[in-house]
Design a binder for these strands. Structure first.
Lengths: 166, 166
DNA sequence: CCGGGATTGTTTAGCTGCTAAACTGTTATA
DNA sequence: TATAACAGTTTAGCAGCTAAACAATCCCGG
């Protein structure tokens, strides 16, 4: 600050170039970038998702951990972390939460005293079933401006990218 | 804790259900969810993006702010925040950074002493041009497993979602 | 012309969701 | 049996946001 603009950087900044009026949205290079649009859509989706799963008091991360645990009972935390693409250290808090809420149990494995196998409880399975239904309804609603074909295309493309880049 | 699993929740957790072996990846309900795949792809993209723009020492957020400023010289911080979909308070640090690096200037506006119009410097325009080229090359490389048609489809779908949901 | 309300930029505190590094206990292997 | 590898955990820290409060300034109705 202090320096109140004059010969500072060439092209005289006269504060009259584009501002003042409305600044219409949607005419940026950003809007031509897949990455930027992906980010914006992801943010929208997360907000919606949070709201949708608020009833079951589940965040996206906790939901995904519960999902894999229910569908792979007995999975180790290391394998779960690998599957979710996060660090083992980051998973601890998530499993702590699931265990506190009696949705998942850490069970000692006879053969190997290092690993804690994760098993869903009945409540865990029920909560998951309910939450999954909610999520499906949520996706239906969120993507309702997109045709079923486009939804299929979107999913297929995203999966293709993951398969290659992951 | 303390309660070491026994009759805790019904179905006896015997730690032999699915673990132990390999736990193949890709057979979860999660992988059928657009939202989850979107998240994973977004994370991959962000990692790649960070690396690509490390040369110019720009994060995604700073790059996007610079982009809009260059393409809308004289824009106010409030309008910029609106355009980027973030809070004004969150933008302050970004603009601070851009100004410290002499890529953007805050310029007092004669008519309204509240607003600080943002103007790119020559260095800002140059850096942006270089970074934008880098980003384009990055997107080419990142999405090279996806056909040009699929890329167009992806972009179109994402933009459609934003147009409606935003 | 003046007083209430809106707006701009800003600071501060706090949240979420991660990682990286270090550590313990345990198992596998050379 | 020493050494490496692995599982889970704790701690510290970062990025990238939001929400709330605030001062300065502008706008507008009466």
């Amino acid at each position: 600050m202090t320096r109140t603009a004059s010969n500072a950087a060439t092209a005289e900044p006269d504060a009259s170039s584009a501002a003042a009026s409305g600044v219409e949205v949607g005419d940026n290079s950003l809007d031509q970038l897949i990455g930027y649009n992906l980010k914006r859509v992801y943010i929208l989706l997360q907000m919606d998702f949070r709201e949708a799963l608020a009833a079951d008091d589940l965040s996206a991360r906790v939901f995904s951990a519960l999902s894999v645990t229910v569908e792979h009972p007995g999975i180790s935390q290391s394998d779960l972390a690998r599957q979710l693409g996060i660090e083992r250290s980051g998973l601890v808090a998530i499993v702590d939460l699931l265990e506190q809420r009696h949705l998942v149990q850490r069970v000692a494995v006879p053969g190997d005293r290092r690993v804690q196998a994760l098993h869903p409880t009945d409540a865990g399975r029920e909560t998951y079933a309910r939450a999954l239904a909610t999520v499906h309804r949520h996706e239906e609603a969120f993507f309702d401006m997109v045709t079923p074909q486009e939804r299929d295309q979107l999913l297929a493309i995203l999966r293709k990218i993951r398969r290659t880049a992951e």
